[in-house]
Design a protein around this nucleic acid. Sequence first.
DNA 1: AACACCCAATTAATCATATCTTTTAACCTC
DNA 2: GAGGTTAAAAGATATGATTAATTGGGTGTT
Lengths: 246, 246
Amino acid sequence: MGRLATVGAKDQISAGLHGSVLDEFGALITSGAFPPGHVLRIEQLEERFGVSRSVTREAIRVLESMGLVTSRRRVGVTIAPRSAWNLFDPRVIRWRLDGADRDELLASLGELRRGVEPVAAGLAARHATPEQCGTLTGAVMQMAVHGRSGDLSAYLAADIVFHRTLLEASGNEMLGALTDVVAEVLAGRTHHHLMPAHPEPAAIRWHAEVAQAVQAGDAEAAERAMRDIVEEANRAMLTTPSPATP
Amino acid sequence: MGRLATVGAKDQISAGLHGSVLDEFGALITSGAFPPGHVLRIEQLEERFGVSRSVTREAIRVLESMGLVTSRRRVGVTIAPRSAWNLFDPRVIRWRLDGADRDELLASLGELRRGVEPVAAGLAARHATPEQCGTLTGAVMQMAVHGRSGDLSAYLAADIVFHRTLLEASGNEMLGALTDVVAEVLAGRTHHHLMPAHPEPAAIRWHAEVAQAVQAGDAEAAERAMRDIVEEANRAMLTTPSPATP
DNA sequence: AACACCCAATTAATCATATCTTTTAACCTC
DNA sequence: GAGGTTAAAAGATATGATTAATTGGGTGTT
């Protein structure tokens, strides 16, 4: 699908001129380059990014809708305090994962997973289709194979399929909407080497337990096993020291 | 902090012309007035909302960033399928709560709470400041008073303070970012008469338990009591039949 | 003289319009 | 059916008009 290959992994939606401005400016803000309360004038931004006013305004509108800035007449564009940010916006998550507070964010998201995924597993046990059950067990098999062979990249792919399928199988759209976030966490964990070279064998076993419990319709067991998974994951992330940022 | 107790009343950010268009159009889309895949031309939208092209484009940019539409050259503005929507965007939640799939959404959000809030309670037990503990116990007292007197509105306000404070006290920004969503659920539940006329006494007792456990730093107990709260809430919401929409 | 209050003048965002460019779906030709 | 051509619609820029709000001065009051 690549076309002109939007440079690497960046699976960005931002098509068009305004998208680049949005992306660049958003990354700047989330990285803390501008302190909250800092005011910029639209004219400055036009000139800084070398685009016209309407393009600038469109980018600002989006940033405003994400809570990163506010725009008021006679004042300008004000950087909003972090508390106003829409932290669940996929773009905000992406910018922050690519930025400096990556580790802190991964920790926060880990706690979120600890709450969400066991519930999703329990619901999946009651709602998963046979096809989804098949996908789950297939993913577990892949994990087992590549976990043993040490192919972390393939292991990650299977892991993502597993968790994505499970969240979707919960039948709850809000939980399903978290698939991308969870995938980002899993990927981030691997890419930033917050995982041991060989995945915990217990983790694979627990994944198998979840898949089995879901298929059997045993909500309790699915929830319990999933809780084991995410708790172990968070523990591993905390104990594995983060290497220096690239 | 209360100020004028925003409880449910349209706390809309949308200032300016483009905000109204965004709000109106977004509500239309989320309500299903346009089927996914339906295509509109910008010119049509200009005329429909009686605004200029630039304003229309700004609104569309924001809608696009929420995943509600896509805009492509030579084609027009296409309504995106639900799976692409940014379901965690506060505005999307608001539109849907005001629209037809309110009940379904409240159910989904209830399950989300079931996952998130117990974890938040556990974390709060380890991170809450003395001041936050005070706010919690104060809120519980208010709930007890107004629960007995049958003042549902005041009860709701105290309930919101309780859950907001707890999520913030978790020290986890992602969980903290869910405060508005949780407040919407609580408010929606009351306003749409999905709650009994007199709140469950057990619920108040559990709130007290949570507050106490948080103060004592007992994460296990806080988590358990909070689990009781949300499970009871979901049960009550399921069993209380939803009255006709106003 | 110190303070509060009100009114304009200024300033910068907001909105509208006109024009040009770029993309690309659809059509037509060979 | 592969190829190029056309035209339709969004994208981008430029600019003028409008609106709102901050600022500062002036007036009246304490």
